[in-house]
Nucleic acid binder design. Structure first.
Lengths: 225, 225
DNA sequence: TTATACCTATGACAAATGTCATAAAACTAC
DNA sequence: GTAGTTTTATGACATTTGTCATAGGTATAA
C-alpha cells in the first residue's frame, strides 16, 4: 500500500498542511479503492464518515431537485478532496457522487481527520481557506445561473472543461460527458443542451464525434452572449 | 462602549467559541458603527480587512453579473458575521454589502481574528462549521436556480422571509424590499417579479400595501409549482 | 455480428420569461 | 400640499426554453 507522505496528490489539497508523522498515521488507517465509471461513490443522505481524496479520475457531485432531476453541482478532479463539509458539520451528505471516469480514491476515516483538525491549526486554516474558495465559486455559479442564458452557461462549461482537462492527440477532451450531463451542468433540458451543442458545431465553435468534444474556437465561445 | 463579552449577539455566531479574555481583548479594538438604509457597507473588490458582526438590521450581499445587473446572493441578519471568507482566503471581497434597514454593526480587525484562528481550535472549527453550512445552502440555491421556475423561487423567497423576519401588528413583514430586490433575489426581470407578486395577490396568497408585504396563505405558497 | 437498449438529433408546438412602452401610484424634497 | 422623481403595474410582443413525438445513430453484450 502506498504511503500518504510519498503521495504527490496531497500537494493539491489541504493534506499538504500535515506533517510527516501525521501523514504516516493516516496512511495506516486509510483505504484505497478503484471506482468504475458510472459507479456511485456515495448518495445524498448517506453518512460518509470520512473524506475521499481523488487520486485519479473525475466524478460529478449531484443533488436531486424538487422536480426529480439530478443537477450537477460540481465536477471533482484528481487532487480534490470530497466530504469535508459533511465531516465538519457532522451531517449526512447533501450530494451524490458518481464516477465519470474510472477512478482511484483514498478514503480517510473521520476520526483521523478530526484529530488533525483539533490539533493542527495550519491544517484547519488550510481547510477553511479551501472552503472559502468553494464558497466564492458557488456565489459565482448562483449569479451565472440567475443571469446568464442557457447558451452562455453551456459555453462557459465548455471553456471550463477546455481549461481544466487534458486533450488527446487530436485535441479532443479526455473527459467524456453525455448530453444529459451537459444539460445537468447548466441546468436545462437534455434536448436544449443537444440543440445548442449542434448549433455550436454548425458555427464551428466545437466539433464532436459521438460523445467526444473538441473546442475549435475558444475565443468564439467566450464571445457567446 | 459595550463589551463583547456582555453582548448576546455573539451567541448566534462563531464568536461564542471564544473565551472571556479573548472577547475582552477584541472589545478593545473593535469599532461600532451605524449604517443607514441604502448605505453601502463595502463593495465588491474592496479589501475588508476584518469581519462585521451584525448587531441589528438586515443587509443584502450582491454580486455584479456579466450583464451589469446586481444579483442578491444572500440576506444577512442580526447575529450573522460577514467577511469571514475574504478574511481566511486573504482576498478582496467578492460581494457588495448594502443595508436594507438601518443597521448597527461591529467591526473586528483582521489581525485580532487571525490571532484567534491560529490559537483557538474550537473557534476555527466553529467557523469551519459555519462555512460548511453556508456551502450547503449555496448548493441548494444553485439547484433551485437551475431547476425551479421563477414563480416557485419567488414563492420560496416569500416563505423564507416569513420564517426569518418579524411581522408588525397587522402581520406585515418588517423587512421591506423593493420589487427590484425581489427580482434580484430570484434572478429575474423586475417586471416579472411585479407580475408574479400581483398574481399571488389576486390568488390571495399574499397582500400588499405599497412595498409592505403580508403572507396570507403560507401553505398555498408551498404548493406553488 | 446482430439484436437490443440507450443516446443523440430534430421538428413542432406550448409555456415561461424578457423587453419595451406607457400609465398609475407612491414616495421625496421643498 | 405640490411638483418632481422614483417605483409599481400592466399590456403587447419577442425571445428563450421546455415538452412531446419520432427518427436515426452508437455502443454493448451475447
Amino acid at each position: 500500500m502506498s504511503k500518504c507522505d510519498q503521495c504527490i496528490i496531497r500537494q493539491f489539497n489541504s493534506l499538504k498542511a500535515l506533517g510527516k508523522d501525521d501523514l504516516i498515521r493516516i496512511s495506516g488507517c486509510k483505504t484505497s479503492r478503484f471506482v468504475q465509471k458510472g459507479e456511485t461513490l456515495f448518495r445524498e443522505g448517506e453518512s460518509i464518515n470520512g473524506i475521499f481524496c481523488i487520486k485519479d479520475g473525475v466524478c460529478k457531485l449531484t443533488k436531486l431537485s424538487a422536480n426529480g432531476k439530478d443537477q450537477i453541482v460540481k465536477l471533482v478532479v484528481r487532487g480534490d478532496l470530497i466530504g469535508q463539509r459533511s465531516l465538519v458539520s457532522d451531517e449526512k451528505s447533501n450530494l451524490t457522487a458518481v464516477a465519470i471516469n474510472d477512478m482511484e480514491v483514498c478514503f480517510i476515516p473521520k476520526s483521523e481527520i478530526l484529530h488533525d483538525l483539533a490539533k493542527n491549526a495550519s491544517f484547519s486554516l488550510d481547510m477553511l481557506q479551501d472552503m472559502a474558495k468553494e464558497l466564492r465559486v458557488a456565489d459565482n455559479i448562483i449569479v451565472d445561473m440567475a443571469q446568464k442564458s442557457v447558451k452562455q452557461r453551456l459555453a462557459d462549461v465548455l471553456i471550463y472543461l477546455h481549461e481544466t482537462f487534458d486533450k488527446d492527440n487530436d485535441g479532443f477532451l479526455t473527459v467524456v460527458l453525455s448530453r444529459e450531463d451537459y444539460a445537468s451542468l447548466v441546468g436545462t433540458a437534455t434536448e436544449s443542451a443537444i440543440r445548442i451543442l449542434s448549433q455550436f458545431k454548425k458555427e464551428g465553435l466545437i466539433s464532436t464525434t459521438g460523445k467526444h468534444v473538441k473546442i475549435e474556437d475558444l475565443e468564439g465561445l467566450r464571445r457567446i452572449e
